[in-house]
């Protein structure tokens, strides 16, 4: 009789996992990680564009050294930060990543403003192409960040509400994830009008 009881108990415990949010929390955490993957990929995409952009701008506006150096330095700084999924549980690392990317964004927008002074450069087909790619990438970054924040919101509320909070504190020990904070003037794609 004791054996049967044990089996029933086991079955009940297994079934109750779906009721206590065990699976939901795991799924939500995976969703956050997937969304983070997109964020990383889009930032990487921007990083890959920059050498070409700098090269093209140099050809026309070589005496804008300061602006160009700022972009190159920002890129180098971003390159030193190891991006990984562990970063998600570490608010400090995430803040560092965010500030480096923010610097990059502002350096790039400054470059795009400077470029306004060079009609030849703006008419250059290469430059126009790069500009489309850069704008597209900035937009992807925006989209990826928004989606990441949404995923974090879902995850955070799922580990904080009852009964999930109980399951989490007993079994999973998942930590709250940090959303992206809007940076002043950095969240908009650099706009260049023709």
């Amino acid at each position: 009789m004791g054996k049967k009881l044990l089996i029933i108990l086991c079955a009940l415990v297994t079934l109750s996992f779906s009721g206590c949010g065990y699976n939901t929390m795991q799924t939500n955490e995976e969703a956050v990680k997937a969304a983070w993957g997109d964020v990383e990929a889009t930032y990487q995409r921007r990083n890959d564009l920059i050498p070409n952009l700098v090269e093209v701008v140099k050809g026309y506006a070589s005496h804008e050294k300061e602006t160009l150096t700022a972009v190159t330095e920002a890129r180098a700084k971003v390159g030193t930060i190891q991006m990984s999924k562990d970063m998600l549980d570490d608010p400090q690392a995430l803040a560092k990543f965010q500030s480096a990317q923010g610097e990059m964004t502002s350096a790039l927008s400054k470059l795009m403003v400077v470029v306004e002074k060079y009609p030849d450069l703006k008419a250059n087909q290469n430059f126009q192409d790069l500009q489309h790619q850069l704008e597209g990438t900035e937009n992807r970054i925006n989209v990826a960040r928004t989606r990441y924040n949404k995923a974090v919101e879902v995850f955070n509320s799922s580990i904080r509400t009852f009964p999930n909070s109980l399951t989490n504190s007993l079994l999973l020990h998942l930590k709250l994830k940090e959303p992206f904070k809007a940076e002043a003037g950095a969240e908009k794609a650099p706009k260049v009008k023709f």
């Binding site: 889009t42 704008e135 597209g136």
Partner: peptide, 10 residues
């Protein structure tokens, strides 16, 4: 699904 790819213009 969409990931923000594409281009804008005026």
């Amino acid at each position: 699904t969409f990931g923000g790819g594409g281009a804008s213009g005026s």
